[in-house]
């Protein structure tokens, strides 16, 4: 069970992307999705999602609404906003630029 910490600074990107893909999710679902989508490689310290989500709420990238889970419990569901989508694009292009650069460095080596 060797799991990697997610690279610093990419937590927002992961959350944004996950929400873009699935629409409405609550915290636990977001954590699960990230983990599953990465084939259990990326390990979020699950609790740290919540400070991140609070910051994103403040930034206006996501909105939250209370709903009910399949198990009939109250949960807060997060959803991307328009500015969240824009932020996702920005973060994606940043990420790709950085990754490309790293890849080029590795290839020339």
């Amino acid at each position: 069970m060797n799991r990697d910490e997610i690279p610093p600074g990419t937590l927002y990107l992961l959350i944004l992307k996950t929400l873009a893909r699935f629409g409405e999710l609550h915290g636990y679902e977001i954590a699960e999705s990230i983990q599953q989508a990465s084939d259990d490689v990326l390990q979020v310290e699950e609790g740290s999602l919540y400070p991140a989500l609070q910051r994103m709420l403040i930034k206006g990238w996501v909105t939250a609404e209370w709903g009910v889970t399949a198990g009939n419990r109250r949960a807060r569901y997060y959803q991307l906003t328009a500015s969240g989508r824009k932020q996702l694009e920005r973060e994606l292009s940043d990420f790709e630029r950085v990754m490309g650069a790293i890849a080029r460095v590795i290839q020339t080596a």
């Binding site: 609550h26 915290g27 636990y28 954590a31 699950e46 609790g47 919540y50 609070q54 889970t69 198990g71 419990r73 109250r74 949960a75 807060r76």
Partner: peptide, 11 residues
Amino acid sequence: LEEEMRLHIDL
């Protein structure tokens, strides 16, 4: 926030 976190741990 607390409720949300508790739900997470329960799940």
